[in-house]
Each structure stands twice: as structure tokens, then as C-alpha cells.
Amino acid sequence: MDLRGWARPMIFAVAWVIALFLLLPGLVTIPVAFNDSRFIALPQGAWSPRHFETLFTSAPWLSSIADSLGVALASTVLAVCLGTACAVGLWRVRPWLAGLVGAIMLAPMIFPPIVSALALYRAWVAIGLYDTWAGVVLAHTILAIPYVIIAVTTSLSMLDGRLEQAARSLGATPLRTMVDVILPNIRTGVATAAVFAFVVSWDEIVVTMFVSSRAVYTLPRRMWDGIRESVDPTVAAVAVVLMALTALGVLAAIVVTLRRPARNT
């Protein structure tokens, strides 16, 4: 008896059901976002864009968007610079050192967020970084560095190490080698790293809640308030905007990945 005949289509069907379970729930925020009501509820006939108007005109939401963008951009730049240099270093130093430093650099990604949050809260209060823009940027940079290192390391693992040796044997300093030889070859990895770092910072909530209170109020924090108190339907409008951006980003990433091998051959 050949199971293959019906087993495959059945597993594919199961996979599609699971995929829809993953994809569809997010869509329920759309009718709620367009609902003409002061509460988080489904429309009873009247649709309106008022929650989107609130999102893009009210001072608190606008300032949170600005805070999130500023923090994410600054911590992306910092994390990409420090993380890329570190990944290139890890690629070239001897294995025991790379193993040790690599393990240290992964810690902020592996440690439970609440543990990092408590530790950073106490430290930030002690050194005067608590509730400052610089403090939030530094915290996000630390959390993003592991993702940068992973993305750049993946890119470096596909690079021929002899390129670096050739540059060095011709007299280039490590810095010159980095700028003129290594960086041009890992551009894609660095770009991926930047996207990762930005998203890590843009979505971060647990550590942010502990290291800031009023001076910096990021978008996830305001969403958290809106959801927990369950009174502000503007969060549904934010959810719709974030969902649209995420879908566009993923589509763009898939298109870019599909095109690249075609261009190289």
C-alpha cells in the first residue's frame, strides 16, 4: 500500500492550516482599528479612520514614534559598528579567544529579558543613565550586538580567508584590510545586521520599561499601556501600521533573496 498518494497532500494541508493559524490572527486588528468607537471593539456598522488620525496627530503618540525611531536609529548605528568590528575580529583571532569572546557577546541575547532588565535598571540608576536617551540607546545597543555579530559572522563564513591574508601580505594594516577588502565583501551581511539591530530596538519592551520612565517613552511602551488598560483603540491602528510594514519588509526581503543568485550566475 502506498501511503505517499494521500499522506503528502494531507501533511501539506496540515501545514497550511498551521500557517494560517500563524498569519490570520493579526488581521483582526484591522476592523478594530477602523472602528468608530472609543473602546477596543469590532465595528457595529460605522467605519472610520479616527484612530489613525489620533495616531498621527496626537502629541503623545507622535513623540513615542519619534523616540522609538531615534533610539532605534542610534542604537543600530552603534551596534552595527561595534558588532561588525567584533565579528571580523572573531573571524581572525585564534579559536580559544574567539570562543570565549563569542560566548560573552551572545549573553545579552540568551539571558532572559527580565534578568537583563533588573541588572541594567540598577546599573543605570547608579551611573546616572536611568531615564535618559543615552541610557536607552546603550541598553538597546547591548541587546542588538549579538544579532549583528551572528549576521556578519554568517556572511564572513562564506568569505575566502585568503583574501584577508593576501591583503595583509601586501602590507595592508588590519584597519585598511577591513575597510578595503573585508567590508566590501560582506555588505549584504552588514545590511542584514542593521535590519536585525533596528527591529530588536524598535520592538524592545521589557528592558525599556525598566531603564526609562518619562523622558523617553518608546512606541512599544505606549502600546503596552494601551493594551494593559484595554481602553485605547489607537493601539489597534498602530498594530495595523506595524503589520503592513512587517509584511512589506518580509516581501522585500524575499524578492531580494530570490533575485541575488540569478544576478550572480
Binding site: L82, C86, W91, I104
Partner: peptide
Amino acid sequence: GEPYVGFLLPATLLVCGLFLIPIGQL
């Protein structure tokens, strides 16, 4: 003789100084 050790330093100092030490204090 490890010419690339310097590349590791900034990130390592940041993560050790402002992450691992606070964790140690906790």
C-alpha cells in the same frame, strides 16, 4: 601577534562593563 584583537575590544568592553558587571551585581 593577534593583529585583530583591537577589533574585539570596543564591543567586548561595552558588553562586559555595562552588561556582565551589572548582571554580576545582581
